[in-house]
Amino acid sequence: MNHKLEGGSVTLREIKYKLSLKIKTAKEHLNIEVTGGYSSDLLSDVMANAKKGNIWITVQSHPNIVAVASLLELSAVIVTGGKKIEKETLSRAEREDITIFDTTDSTFNIVGKLYKMGVIGG
């Protein structure tokens, strides 16, 4: 049963809940609806291809992920693989109002679960 396939939109709250993500920054934005997803660890590739409102799945945790998310107005970033997120990244995300989640789950699994929820690419 997947009501998302019948329309309706997925919020960050639902994603956080269903994927058991930990929220690290900008916790007040859980009502935001995501427009789709993008996954890549090359920042330049994300800059060229992700779209406004997308949720971005990556193993990168450098402060520049915040700059990229902010530039493209992404809805959130999920840092996968249990990567320790740099302090500077978190403080910058708080400042720029970018929601960051983290998880020990892999990119592959997270993307699969999102897809099943109706969050698709492009």
């Binding site: 330049s44 700059a67 530039l71």
Partner: peptide, 11 residues
């Protein structure tokens, strides 16, 4: 280099 304008308030 891709032709992206620098956004000072971000970068």
């Amino acid at each position: 280099l891709p032709n992206i304008k620098n956004k000072e308030e971000i970068f």
